[in-house]
Amino acid sequence: MRMTNAPARAIGIDIGGTGMKAGVVDLAEGALVGDRVRIPTPEGALPRDVLETARQLVELLGDDARDLPIGVCFPAIVKDGITLSAANVSVEWIGLDADDLFGKALGRDIHFVNDADAAGLAEAKFGAARDQAGLTIMTTLGTGIGSAFLYNGVLVPNTELGHLQWDGESIERYASASARERGDIPWDEWSARLQKFFAHVEFLFSPDLIVVGGGVSKNPEKFLPGIETRAPIVTAVHRNNSGIIGAASLVLT
C-alpha cells in the first residue's frame, strides 16, 4: 500500500534477532520524535509472535503514533513486501506477504524492507552517506552482518555480504558482533576478524565509502582503529537508530 500524500511523521519498527525497536520519526529531519521503545524479539521469531510484539510496540508509542503509517525493517531479503529468506528468524517468513499480513492486522499502510537496506537509506538521506558520490557500502554489525549498497545515493537492494563464505560458513558466524559476544573475543581480536571481512569486501567492490552501523557503532573507539581500508570508513550518524529512521522514510516513496 502506498500513500498519495506524504506524511510529516511515520513509525519505524526495527525487527532484530534479539530485540525489536520502534519510534516515531520526523520525516523532514530524519530524527526520532521522543524516545524509542524496545521489546525482546520473541523466541523463535514466528510471524504471529513478531506481529503481536509489533502491535505492543505501537501501543507503547502512545498518542504520538496514532494512525501513522509504518515502515518495518527485517533481517531477510524483501521484494515487493514479501520476505524471501530467514536469517536468525523462523523459516515461516520465507515467501510470506509481510506487507499484507501486517497491514491487515495493524490497520495501517505498511512498508517492509531489509534491515540493513533501511539503515543504508537513513544514512544516505540523513547521515554519513548524504550527498556521497559513487558506491557507499553500509554494514550493520549485530546478530549477523547486514549490508546495503548505495550508488550515488540510490539503493541497490538485498545484498547479503554477511553470507559471504568463510571456512565453509557465512562470514557473519565469524565476524558479527554476536560472534564476538558468543566467544567472549577481545575487541582487538575482533577488529582483526573485521579487517579480513572488510579487506575482502574492498577487493570485490572497491567502495568509495564504508559506513558501519549496528549496536556496536556506539563504541567505535573499541574496534574501528584496528581496521585499515582504502576507502574512508566511518560510523553511522544515527548509530543503532538508522534502521528505524530508514524504515519510516519508506513511506515517502
Rank of each mutant, 00 (worst) to 15 (best):
T4Y: 13
P7Q: 00
R9S: 08
I11D: 02
G12L: 12
I13H: 02
D14W: 01
I15E: 03
T18K: 10
G23D: 00
V24Q: 06
D26I: 06
A28T: 14
L32T: 03
V33R: 13
G34T: 05
D35T: 13
I39M: 11
T41E: 11
P42Y: 05
G44F: 04
G44E: 09
L46V: 14
T53Y: 02
A54I: 05
L57Y: 06
L61N: 01
L61P: 06
D64K: 13
D64V: 11
A65L: 06
R66E: 14
G71C: 09
V72Y: 03
V78M: 08
V78Y: 08
S85F: 14
N88D: 15
V91Q: 13
V91E: 15
E92P: 06
W93F: 13
G95N: 05
L96C: 13
D97R: 04
A98I: 09
L101N: 04
K104D: 14
K104Y: 11
A105Y: 04
G107Q: 05
G107E: 08
G107K: 01
F112T: 06
N114G: 02
A116S: 06
A116Q: 07
A118E: 04
A119F: 03
K125S: 15
G127F: 02
A128G: 01
A129M: 04
R130K: 13
R130V: 07
Q132S: 11
A133P: 10
I137Q: 07
T140P: 07
G142Y: 00
T143F: 02
G144E: 12
F149V: 02
L150C: 12
Y151W: 12
N152K: 10
N152G: 11
G153C: 10
L155Q: 13
T159R: 10
L161P: 08
L161C: 09
L164D: 12
I171E: 06
E172C: 08
A175W: 00
R180H: 03
E181D: 15
W190A: 03
Q195E: 14
A199E: 12
L204E: 12
G213H: 00
V216R: 02
P220Y: 07
E221C: 10
E221R: 10
K222I: 08
K222S: 14
K222T: 12
L224Q: 07
I227M: 06
P232Q: 11
P232W: 01
P232I: 15
I233E: 05
V234N: 09
V234G: 06
A236I: 10
H238W: 02
R239L: 15
N240G: 03
